[in-house]
Design a protein around this nucleic acid. Structure first.
Length: 690
DNA sequence: GGGGGCCTGCTCA
DNA sequence: TTCCATGAGCAGGCCCCC
């Protein structure tokens, strides 16, 4: 009988998944917002599903969904493999940890979390009262930022595309986003918060945490009264309503502020029993830090739905998650959270990104990249920040997100520097159809005093070997294999160096750009002095030999102060230091012996390998000749007495020169690896902040 | 072979 | 026809260096 019921039940679920496919489309309603309680969830889900179905976005959502299911299955399998003894062992670990965590409970502080009600929408209504009572959304047809409570009744919500929102609510009024206005009103609320806690923590424009322990004591007021007064103060100052939650820590205060939204408050007493009762039936999704994926994993693998379940299944959590994750889950089960006021948190990175219609147009993409570099540079300079890690973010037409990063030898902030390195990163990804590009600078210098080299390496570690990532100072792999011995070997191929150029002429900064410490160039280094620059200028010496006079548009801006990046082809003796640096940085040119071997037969066929490449493939031809140069260099290395000294670097360099898969391309994607994506990525952060 | 830096993808708010 | 922007942090894999 029971089996029959189960069977009927599962059949019914399968039938539903076929007849109502939108029920498994989880993009909407992963966590109902305030004001959406009475919404016909199924109707909204169906409409969103029907409007999204078949789109690239939809396909990508399905891909992500499949990955999540895969993770769940993987975890289930691990769970099933646990023996009774192992489970008992992990249960003991969990119990011990719960006891330890319990000792950290602090009920001496009172935290208040304040959250403005539908902030952007409310501000817009304030400045245009005719919107009052009408369904309205802030944003546009592509995306809306927030919706007022009238619109939420139709299922319209933040992060929903405008065209879907309009379908759900045809009378919906769209108002464009105006951040200046929101920032202004946010500053007014902060004035009020300051009266209650000088060190309040602004979580965003519309949210803040206040430690009201002191004010309650000094003014002999209950937390309820303080919350009431603060909300009244915010309304008087701005004309906007807000909701508040009070609890013994930030995690609980945040949960509480959502309970009586909008324009309400909820107080959780500083009492262990009250906390445990409150938390016991609380759905895990209400906790900041537990999102859609975590919720699904905990529910589908461990049948954990409430915070109390977290404690009961502690043994399994300790068995299958890292210690920091397990600690976070157990803390949540105990209703623990941060009670201290954190030190001023320094910014770790700065970024910007832009979405546009998907395109393969490289001119457009490079133009967009330049705009991003300009904007980011401007933002960095406003805060006097210099970073040495640059990340390029791309979203393909299929919504696949890629990031490519490079760690530089020196701190940068100028748009020229950012663009120079960003172009290199982008170049490696093209051709591609992209719909979003972003740039992020991180690893800021601690003193913020401007560009400097954080790791002045001596020439004994490398001449132009570059940083630990295997790139030279400009992110190029081209020249990293060159040490002084190699230079000597190469130099032997150049019988006639230009006499007018010496390494002495390089400034210390430029040497640093090359990865050389200035101390390297001593009076005893005559060989090197004379031999480096011919490498960079040989092509200029005899333009008739060179297939391309290649002064890349991707020049290193700092290394080349000249405004004119074009080398005077036949005037190499006048070549200034920046030009030397520039040419050296970017383009290794074929040696004379290589030139003897390397020609474009009939202007299109490589004399060495026979590959055909028409004249107009300027860049590709350059890369090809570079490849043969690198090949030649490797031959020279292997014949050198010091070949061993170069270890395995040349191989890598040559691979890259030839356009073989770069390191990141050689790696399997996470999906291919089927790796389990950790749930606890930001739990440390959450436990610190909440 | 181990330690550690770097890069990538992912998650969450 | 149309599905965001930004900041943060972590695991895991790859690679280099010692």
């Amino acid at each position: 009988m029971e089996n029959n019921e189960k069977s009927e039940s599962s059949t019914s679920i399968i039938d539903d998944s076929i007849s109502k496919p939108w029920q498994s489309y989880h993009t909407v309603y992963t966590n109902a917002k305030a004001g959406m309680d009475g919404v016909d969830k199924e109707k909204v889900q169906r409409i969103v599903y029907e409007m999204s179905k078949g789109s690239k976005y939809f396909e990508n959502e399905e891909r992500k969904e499949a990955l999540m299911r895969q993770k769940i299955e993987h975890m289930r399998a691990r769970c099933a493999k646990l023996t009774t003894a192992e489970i008992a062992q992990h249960q003991k670990v969990a119990e011990r940890r719960i006891t330890e965590l319990e000792t950290t409970r602090d009920l001496t502080r009172t935290w208040l979390h304040v959250d403005m009600d539908a902030f952007y929408a409310a501000v817009e209504t304030l400045s245009n009262p005719s919107l009052k009572g009408k369904p309205m959304a802030v944003g546009g047809m592509s995306m809306i930022s927030t919706a007022n409570y009238e619109a939420r009744k139709f299922g319209v919500r933040a992060a929903m595309p405008g065209f879907i929102a309009r379908r759900l609510c045809p009378e919906l009024i769209f108002v464009p986003v105006d951040f200046k206005k929101y920032t202004y009103y946010s500053s007014l609320t902060k004035k009020v918060y300051q009266k209650y806690d000088q060190n309040f923590i602004a979580a965003s424009l519309d949210e803040a945490y206040l430690d009201i322990t002191k004010i309650c004591r000094e003014r002999e007021m209950s937390s309820d009264e303080v919350a009431e007064e603060l909300r009244r103060g915010v309304f008087e100052e701005t004309g906007l309503t807000c909701s508040a939650g009070v609890g013994p820590n930030r995690l609980l205060a945040k949960v509480c502020s959502d309970i009586n939204k909008p324009n309400g408050q909820f107080i959780l007493p500083n009492d262990r029993m009250a906390v445990m009762t409150f938390i016991s039936s609380l759905p895990i999704r209400k906790i900041g830090g537990i999102g859609k994926v975590t919720e699904n994993v905990l529910r589908d693998v461990f049948e954990i739905k409430t915070c109390q379940d977290l404690l009961q299944k502690g043994g399994f959590l300790c068995a299958l998650f890292s210690q920091s994750s397990a600690d976070f889950f157990l803390s949540v089960g105990l209703g623990l959270g941060s009670t201290d006021t954190p030190q001023v948190r320094l910014r770790k990175s700065m970024s910007n990104e832009r979405t546009f219609s998907a395109t393969r147009d490289e001119v457009f993409l490079y133009q967009k990249l330049a705009e991003l570099a300009e904007m980011l540079s401007s933002d960095l300079q406003k805060e006097e920040l210099h970073g040495r890690n640059l990340t390029l973010k791309l979203k393909t037409a299929g919504f696949e997100v890629r990031t490519r990063a490079v760690t530089l030898q020196k701190y940068i902030c100028s748009s020229e520097d950012i663009l120079w390195h960003a172009k290199k990163l982008l170049k490696a990804e093209l051709p591609a159809s992209l719909r979003l590009m972003g740039l992020r600078v991180s690893q800021f210098s601690e003193d913020n005093v401007g560009p400097s080299d954080p790791s002045q390496k001596s020439i004994t570690s490398f001449v132009i070997k570059g940083d630990a990532s295997g790139r030279d100072a400009h992110g190029s792999d081209d020249l990293k294999l060159i040490d002084s011995d190699v230079i000597n070997n190469i130099a032997d191929d150049y019988d006639h160096f230009p006499d007018g150029v010496h390494l002495d002429a390089f400034t210390s900064d430029q040497l640093s750009d090359l990865g050389c410490s200035s101390s390297y160039i001593s009076d005893n280094d005559e060989d090197v002095r004379g031999k480096i620059d011919p490498l960079s200028n040989i092509q200029a010496r005899d333009s008739s030999l060179a297939p391309i006079v290649h002064v890349s548009e991707l020049r290193e801006p700092d290394a080349c102060q000249s405004s004119d990046i074009r080398l005077p082809v036949h005037d190499y003796k006048k070549t200034d230091t920046s030009e030397c640096t520039n040419a050296m940085n970017d383009d290794a040119v074929p040696s004379s012996s290589l030139q003897a071997q390397f020609q474009w037969v009939d202007d299109y066929k490589c004399s060495i390998c026979g590959i055909e490449m028409p004249l107009e493939f300027v860049h590709e031809r350059q890369e090809h000749s570079d490849f043969h140069l690198a090949e030649r260099l490797q031959q020279q290395c292997s014949s050198s007495n010091l070949a061993n000294h170069l270890s395995n670097t040349p191989k890598r360099a040559i691979q890259n020169d030839h356009g073989s898969p770069s390191r990141q391309k050689k790696r399997k994607s996470t999906a291919e690896q089927g790796k389990y994506i950790p749930i606890d990525k930001f739990f440390k952060k959450r436990t610190q902040n909440m």
